[in-house]
Design a protein around this nucleic acid. Structure first.
Lengths: 310, 310
DNA sequence: GATAACCGTGCACAATAGGTGCATGATTGA
DNA sequence: TCAATCATGCACCTATTGTGCACGGTTATC
């Protein structure tokens, strides 16, 4: 209902480059360029200025983007209310989420929605949290399940989103099964301080979570290897290359020579998993139903942890 | 920036028929029909229902229209603020007004804007007050100068508009120059109670003003003739067919055998002339400038009435 | 300081959304 | 029963809007 060119401008405000905006919105770079030019013509405002080999927003452009937050939210809110009032037959619903979240939470949600609403065309996009927010802004997806980080660029009070906590997913330790501590049920990070650690590349989504866990207990881990996928990390541990942290939700499957241990002691690290939607859309019946399903699923998962004291 | 199909729906909510909506928006009936159908498809909502040989809004449709008021206002407000912030070059500006208002206030405004902003394409539409409001909703015009009636369908608190009082335009009496009272400077309505009156057709814009003037002093006038244009009414009076009320702003020109007299006594009738814009757009620099010009012009007109006591 | 990489934009072309005008069907009032 | 009114479907057309490619300008690298 809001002019798609304004949406494009908002995405550009996040990305900074026409190319990235094109990639995120699904348009070609020329189309984005043309849209932004057209938007300026229609409004009679200069929103962009050349800046080196790229373009940047002018003050007016930033003003417009900032002010449009509430406009978008208002529309989402109105649409949600209208859909609540009328018996809507929404045709498309986009979900976004990151790896384990997508597998453990989004897949069941999509399956449930598919069965309860056969008319609905559910689309799931796997994407990391930052990209999920961008996809929400770009209106490519309507709901995202993401990991809330301390270093999250998007605060809870961001005018563009509304976030709902689903569950806290504790981090476990995975060590080779021939490790001296392998028979233990619980360990502390301090006990593993001198181990060679396997983690993700610096700057990646979980790396900050990794370091935060150690800084909480005042230990500096020795990072021996880097992996991108959980599977790779598990394989490395299985090969005896070191130890690693693995979220409870990430399945170990039938990995050989790898043991999962619960962490104990103070500052047990965990990642908070939240659902995010565009502000205003939370009243939409589809979003409401989705959040209900996610909450129930999250509760079921938490309840299935018999050993969780504290 | 708001989807034109939603604007069309809003106009339809006012008109009630597809044909009238087409006439007001400038589209063809088929286009309006297609737009409304498309809007329902996109939203997945049933907004219209067949009703006899026409269509009417469903409850959901009415809800959406009502809720969109604030959405439109928010956009207007944002655009106005952005245009204030940036140095905009608005290309089109639509003005609407009714007969004398258009001639006395709108024409000078258009001329001034044309000279101060050569780039700007100013368009003036003559239309009665009710239609002016419709044209504002349809976004055919951006500012209207209208006569505020007691029986105004659009209250000051309407979420869609913001109104600014420009001036009060008193009603004068016009009588044949050979009338016994023609030499008087001032008369009261009571003195003319038994005269044959010339007015507009019942139900027309000024008829309610006419009757209100008499009910205020407790007199029931005898309506002898009806005219549509001021010119016609003046000619009738000149022909000795009766007497009539004429707003001060309406020029008498060089009408023969007609004298204009000031009304005195309690409840001197007058019509209030106000400027109306879409809610939110009042902060726009163009609207601000226009209102300034109108206000100044109104003050000049009022100041040119040396005899106005009370 | 040459070269390569990157970024945005203009242009020819294609697709498609969105417009008009007319004919049609349905409904109401004379 | 007939005419008037209203919305809508259809054929057709226009013009907006997207793509792909080439180009010019800017920055980083060697």
């Amino acid at each position: 209902m809001i002019d798609p060119r304004l949406i494009t401008l908002r995405v550009f405000a996040r990305c900074g480059t026409v190319g990235a905006t094109a990639e995120l919105t699904g348009y070609s770079p020329s189309a984005v360029s043309a849209q932004l030019r057209e938007l300026q013509r229609v409004l009679g405002l200069q929103l962009l200025a050349k800046d080196g080999r790229g373009v940047r927003l002018t003050a007016t452009g930033r003003f417009l983007v900032a002010g449009s937050d509430s406009l978008i939210a208002e529309w989402e809110s109105l649409r949600a209310a209208a859909m609540e009032a009328g018996d809507q037959v929404q045709s498309h619903f986009g979900l976004g989420g990151f790896s384990t979240a997508a597998a453990q939470l989004l897949a069941p949600l999509a399956a449930t929605l598919r069965s309860t609403r056969p008319q609905l065309e559910v689309q799931v996009l796997e994407a990391d949290p930052a990209r999920c927010f961008d996809l929400l802004v770009a209106e490519r997806i309507d709901l995202a399940v993401i990991v809330a980080m301390q270093s999250n660029t998007y605060g809870e009070d961001d005018l563009r989103f509304e976030q709902t906590v689903l569950l806290d997913d504790p981090l476990d330790v995975i060590i080779p099964s021939d490790h001296p501590l392998a028979s233990r049920e619980r360990v502390t990070l301090e006990e593993l301080a001198s181990e060679p650690w396997i983690t993700e590349a610096a700057g990646s989504t979980y790396h900050s979570l990794f370091t935060a866990a150690f800084t909480a207990v005042g230990v500096t881990p020795r990072i021996a290897h880097e992996a991108v996928e959980w599977e790779t990390q598990i394989a490395f541990v299985g090969a005896g290359l070191g130890v690693g942290l693995l979220p409870r939700l990430a399945p170990l499957r039938n990995a050989e020579n790898v043991v999962r241990l619960r962490l104990t002691g103070k500052g047990r690290p965990s990642r908070r998993i939240v659902a995010a939607v565009r502000r205003g859309s939370i009243a939409s019946p589809l979003v409401q139903e989705s959040l209900d399903i996610l909450q129930k699923n999250a509760e079921r998962i938490v309840a299935a942890r018999p050993e969780d004291e504290l």
